[in-house]
Amino acid sequence: MLNLFDHEAETEGVVVRVAVSFLPEQSRSEASRWFWAYHIRIENHGSQPVKLLTRHWLITDGRGGQHHVDGEGVVGEQPYLKPGESHDYVSGCPLNTPTGRMEGVFRMIRDDQTIINAEIPRFPLVAPAVAR
């Protein structure tokens, strides 16, 4: 089976997987705008249900400029995952450079009120040379 996800991290039984795609049709190099879509899968390999409360992203552009994004849930949802369940979503990221990276944390809570800061693995944002 082909593995869709190139990047993954595990924190206390929560696995976060990431696949990223450059979107040339939404990018405009002449306007210094490059755009990527990323697909996230959150898997609960633990023994208790977990609920995603908040997200924190650190987005770094190719010049080292950093942007922090914080918010509740993901794309308007706060998924509740029983052991063995997963949640997928897709979102996007524009940058003003043809390269950069993203990484972050999902703050989650178990039924016993234990907090987990599930790592979102660092992944590169790289536009193909023809799109630069």
Rank of each mutant, 00 (worst) to 15 (best):
V130R: 04
A131L: 07
I42T: 11
S47C: 02
V75E: 11
H45T: 03
P24T: 11
H67S: 12
H68L: 14
E85F: 06
V74N: 10
R17H: 05
A9W: 03
S86C: 05
E10Y: 00
S27E: 09
G84Y: 02
N3D: 15
I115K: 01
H56R: 14
P94H: 10
R41H: 02
K51F: 01
M1A: 14
W57A: 10
D111A: 10
P128R: 02
H87S: 06
K51H: 03
R17P: 04
L23F: 05
R33L: 12
E12K: 03
G65W: 02
M1Y: 13
V14M: 00
D111S: 10
K82V: 05
A127C: 03
W36G: 12
N117H: 12
L4K: 14
R122F: 05
W34G: 09
L2T: 14
P94S: 15
P24F: 08
R17L: 03
G76T: 08
I40Q: 11
P128D: 07
G84S: 05
V105S: 00
G62K: 13
E25F: 07
R33H: 08
V50D: 10
V90F: 04
R107T: 15
W36P: 05
R41T: 01
E43H: 05
A118D: 06
R55M: 10
T60R: 10
E103H: 05
S29N: 07
P49M: 12
T114A: 14
F5N: 08
Q48Y: 01
E77K: 15
E103A: 02
D88C: 04
F106H: 01
D111G: 06
P79D: 07
E10A: 01
D88N: 10
P128Q: 04
V20R: 01
Q66R: 15
T114K: 13
Q48L: 15
E77Q: 15
R41L: 04
W36K: 12
E43W: 02
V130H: 03
Q78P: 02
I40K: 07
